[in-house]
């Protein structure tokens, strides 16, 4: 654990130096990568460690984005709005977890997938508060310059990613992580051994929600404008899964590695072909599932 923690510190320090090297393009890319990293790390709690195929990331992201945006619209300061978004996602994940984590397999996957749709429609319908389909404009932070703003959101996302990573590392080496691994292997046997499975699963689900909620709120402040189809996009859920699959589910650095690689692909290969963006993403998923279901990490073992 110490070695992993040291490596992680080194990595985050390196990432923190990125603004020195690059221009606003690299800064934007870095911020997006860290956001993806938060999505992937968060999914790892429930999907990788507990083994529940959650598609709820988009729900948490959208909820956080709207909670933060509405709070700011009502006059809350930005930092407070972000914290509020995290709290909203945490409470929502707890309630949702108690209800949905009794389901297994496909049923859980579908129910978690559908939650984002329901939230999106509700946000669409609650026009007074959210602006409905018209979207919502956020106040532009009073910071010195455009560059200063970009820098600010980059470091905000970096801090969040580091926090999420630290939480994951701590969880993996604690009772919680151990219990989740037992659940992932055989839930009823874990129960019989004294693991409070409901509590552990809900805890994992809450951890998978809270950081994504804050990421949504930071994203909303960053781009100044959100609309329901944008922040409740099911692709957030799918990308989170794909990134973890690329890196290897349940591993420590897998999610971050997957996020970096995924974003590189997205940026280099198919952002240039915007028309077929999702199609290429689909192809990537199919190839990944067919040939590398255990992630790129398995390549190392296979060749060794």
């Amino acid at each position: 654990m110490k070695r992993d923690a040291l490596r992680a510190v080194a990595m985050f320090v390196l990432i923190a130096l990125l603004p020195l090297a690059g221009d606003s393009y690299w800064l934007r890319l870095g911020t997006t990568m860290l956001m993806y990293g938060v999505l992937a790390i968060s999914w790892n709690f429930i999907g990788g460690m507990a083994g529940y195929p959650s598609f709820a990331s988009a729900a948490f992201f959208g909820l956080g984005a709207y909670a933060g945006a509405v709070a700011q619209k009502l006059g809350a300061p930005m930092g407070f709005a972000w914290a509020l978004a995290g709290a909203a996602a945490l409470v929502f994940a707890a309630a949702l977890g108690v209800a949905l984590l009794r389901l297994r397999g496909h049923y859980f996957a579908i129910a978690s997938l559908v939650v984002a749709e329901v939230l999106r429609e509700l946000v669409n319908a609650a026009t007074d508060l959210t602006g409905g389909g018209m979207g919502l404009n956020l106040p532009i932070p009073r910071l010195a310059s455009i560059e200063g703003q970009a820098m600010f959101f980059f470091y905000a996302m970096l801090a969040l990613a580091a926090l999420a990573f630290a939480a994951m590392l701590a969880a993996m080496h604690s009772r919680l992580g151990f219990g989740l691994r037992c659940i992932q292997q055989n839930e009823s046997a874990a129960d019989m051994l004294g693991v409070n499975t409901t509590l552990y699963k809900v805890a994992a689900f809450m951890l998978s929600g809270v950081f994504v909620g804050v990421a949504g709120a930071i994203y909303a402040s960053w781009v100044h404008y959100i609309e329901p189809p944008d922040v409740f996009d099911v692709l957030y859920s799918v990308k989170a899964i794909v990134m973890v699959l690329i890196g290897g589910a349940g591993s420590v650095f897998g999610p971050l590695f997957g996020a970096a690689l995924f974003l590189s692909l997205e940026e280099l290969v198919w952002r240039n072909y915007l028309q077929v963006h999702t199609g290429v993403l689909g192809l990537l998923i199919v190839l990944l599932v067919l040939f590398l279901p255990k992630g790129l990490i398995s390549l190392r073992r296979r060749t060794a």
């Binding site: 195929p53 899964i241 794909v242 028309q275 199609g279 993403l281 192809l283 998923i285 199919v286």
Partner: peptide, 16 residues
């Protein structure tokens, strides 16, 4: 998770 991802990926391709 894998079978679901597989048909999901195929669907993204077809829809696109």
């Amino acid at each position: 998770l894998l079978t679901l991802s597989l048909t999901f990926g195929l669907d993204l391709m077809l829809a696109n």
